[in-house]
Design a protein around this nucleic acid. Structure first.
Lengths: 192, 192
DNA sequence: CGCGTGATTGAAACCCTTCAAGTTTAGTGG
DNA sequence: CCACTAAACTTGAAGGGTTTCAATCACGCG
């Protein structure tokens, strides 16, 4: 349930020990309690957050006051509002803690620095970007082509662990339906 | 209605003349007639396509045989299945020509080459990636939070020129609704 | 002119939402 | 350990928005 950032970089991005060494002094960590805000709408997002332990969510709130979840991030995942960071614009989204969470903070300076001293990191960063696009494009495709039921089946297949940890109404919010609808979708599924 | 690739690179990406010079020999062009396929499902996509003239679309076909449009690209836009290119995997999508179209072809070798000889190009490529993510994330947000009507209003605001050139049933497909529904949405809008 | 494609309209069916009520669950304090 | 409370989940009924299917209309092109 805990994934240390340094070992994550070693195992997944092939980052060498001497780079980890140089990183260790510059890396900052923070803890967020359940419900605490990590990013507020209107704020310019300055960092990426690597989740070592816990669970964060990125979401918007519409004019009727309803939340719509764009992304979850549990252990071993990054979360941020990329557009806000890259274009230095106020974010239209919120990030808060679904559980008590510990994150590693990565600001642009640090990412640039790592990119300069480590080609592996540069490559891995590119990999994360491409993966992000693949994921978003697939999600758009499902939202315009698939029923609520098949989107839900896709979700529990992709994120079996999240299905256990995230309250059902948040999954509904991620799928773009109401909690009541998801409850009925699930009821239909157990029938089969 | 025509945007030459070289002048585009100069004006938008700040690419210098000597880079354009080196590029000119390696650049390839192709023309597609209206309805002709640029990429077929199951095929590994090897290139990016810069549209100099005309209009392309990226779309999926579901199990019921219905098309769902992920992206349009008219003059001055790039289109491709990034995931297929980057991960070297068969594409789940189609690309075809909505109008007679002329494109510049960019394969990975060429992009690498340009990145090596031009920091401006590298920067611009990064810019395109980040923009792609911003756009997709915004689209996901609209699909899970907004009504068909407001998604349509967003579309005609973002792409006023496409609204004229693209048949209405394709806009419906992009919005994730049926042509009949879009017709009724538009009927309601003129009332107001 | 006749044909095919795209757009519109109507009626019925369907899915999803809304609102309201009731049930279950988890957490807290006595 | 039980009682209480709040939050989450379920269920029902009514309503709204979308889809489906079919028919009609409008337009451009051979």
């Amino acid at each position: 349930m805990t994934k240390n950032f340094s070992t994550y970089l070693k195992e997944n991005a092939g980052i060498t020990d001497d780079v980890i060494e140089q990183l260790s002094g510059k890396l900052q960590f923070r803890e967020f309690q359940k419900g605490q805000f990590v990013l507020n709408e209107g704020q310019v997002c300055k960092q990426f957050f690597y989740v070592e332990k816990g669970l964060l969510r990125l979401y918007s709130i519409d004019c009727a006051g309803k939340e719509h979840i764009i992304q979850f991030a549990s252990e071993g995942w990054f979360i941020s509002d990329r557009s806000s960071v890259y274009f230095n614009k106020p974010s239209a989204f919120f990030i808060d803690a679904v559980e008590d969470t510990r994150v590693a903070l990565l600001d642009e300076d640090l990412i640039c620095f790592l990119g300069e001293i480590s080609p592996q990191f540069r490559k891995y960063n590119e990999h994360l970007l491409q993966n992000h696009i693949r994921h978003l494009q697939n999600r758009v495709n499902l939202l315009i082509s698939a029923t609520a039921e098949s989107r839900y089946l896709d979700f529990i297949k992709l994120y079996p662990n999240l299905t256990q940890r995230v309250p059902q109404w948040m999954i509904a919010s991620y799928l773009g339906i109401t909690p009541e609808s998801l409850s009925r979708v699930r009821k239909e599924l157990v029938k089969k």
